[in-house]
Amino acid sequence: MSLPDPDVLIFLASAVLALVSSALVILHRSIVYSAFFLSIVGIANAILFSLLGFPIIALFHLIVYVGAAVTFILFSLVMMREVPTVEPGLKVVTFSAFILTVLVLSRIFLSVGAQPSFYLEYKGLTSILIEKYWFALIVASLALATTLIEAITLARREV
């Protein structure tokens, strides 16, 4: 009896995690916890991107989406007087998120040495972004700058 493929196991774990977390995003009564579960959906998706052969996109998703967008929602909820209530299972959820982050990073770094069927190289991605999609890149940069201005305006509380 041979051991199952580790990629299949990681896919199954990530898929179950993404499904359960996305259901909790909709169903949990606290919006703060819903935003937290959305970050777990993002982490599970990053693992799946890495399995598909896109480790750079997985890292970008972790940094920009989970690290900036979801955190922005969480901090904004505090401005709406939605104070997070500490629930008993918080430590378990936090620990599982930590384990997930370790899992996705180790999967990304280990895939560099392996030979998957498809692997997106950093050089190919940057060249296609600069040569073919330069205008979309400028629009995306302007949109992110707009978000920064919005955040500063909101922080002044004079609107």
Partner: peptide, 13 residues
Amino acid sequence: GALAVIAISLSAA
């Protein structure tokens, strides 16, 4: 990959 990078940036905005 390029489309995904742009989509993630626009989603953050």
